[in-house]
């Protein structure tokens, strides 16, 4: 565990707390892509199956359980409790376009052709693109609530911090995982446009409106 890794995990944790608080306090999931949330739930459930096979640390297990349970809770809030506020007209990204290639890639390029490893790899690839329905939704409506943009910023920052963690681990532990690194870089690059808008607008107290 290094400082980048810890900061990344905390940023990830904060993103999820912001999202749940936004939905709970405003009693609304307007502006949130249910499709991205389904993909994230799929990411966590397929990656953290190792909870049942090997124990790493209490920190590790607690975080994994947290990510799985909060992603299921988010889906419950969006599709059951606050269903009426779900903006499905703007949430139209076809997730099959992501799921099919990611499944094929997971089957072809993995560390080990075993169910657990293929699912782990699938999860890494899927996570890198899971935000696309959400970014598509923001670009379609042309804006995002400030709280939603804080959520997106923390979620994007988490993987960017992991890149520094991987650089650190490469130099100090001689460890690197090419699958995670390539997917993590792709994931971070997808947020770049959003990061630019966040820094130039939201930080200065303006709403996140996309240029026409």
């Amino acid at each position: 565990m290094n400082v980048f890794r810890l900061a990344g995990d905390l940023s990830h944790l904060l993103a999820i707390i912001i999202l749940l608080l936004k939905i709970w306090k405003t009693r609304s999931c307007a502006g949130i892509s249910g499709r991205s949330q389904i993909l994230f739930a799929l990411v966590y459930t397929t990656r953290y199956l190792d909870l049942f096979t090997n124990f790493i640390s209490l920190y590790n297990s607690v975080m994994k359980v947290f990510f799985i349970s909060t992603s299921c809770a988010t889906i419950y809030l969006m599709y059951v409790k606050f269903k009426a506020t779900y903006d499905h007209n703007h949430d139209t990204f076809r997730i099959g376009f992501l799921l099919i290639p990611v499944t094929i890639l997971g089957l072809l390029i993995n560390h080990d052709f075993t169910p657990l490893e293929v699912l782990w790899t699938f999860s890494i690839y899927l996570e890198s693109v899971a935000i696309l329905p959400q970014l598509f939704m923001v670009s379609k409506t042309g804006d995002a609530e400030t709280i939603t943009s804080h959520y997106l910023f923390c979620l994007g920052l988490y993987r960017a911090l992991y890149i520094f963690n991987w650089i650190y681990r490469y130099y100090f532990e001689g460890f690197y995982d090419l699958i995670a690194i390539v997917a993590g870089v792709v994931q971070t690059v997808l947020y770049c446009d959003f990061f630019y808008l966040y820094v130039t607008r939201v930080i200065k107290g303006k709403a996140l409106k996309l240029p026409a």
């Binding site: 890794r5 995990d9 990830h12 790493i56 994994k64 080990d112 963690n165 995982d177 995670a180």
Partner: peptide, 10 residues
């Protein structure tokens, strides 16, 4: 081993 190092990350 290496798999454990990967699975340590979240």
């Amino acid at each position: 081993g290496e798999a454990l190092m990967r699975h340590d990350e979240l």
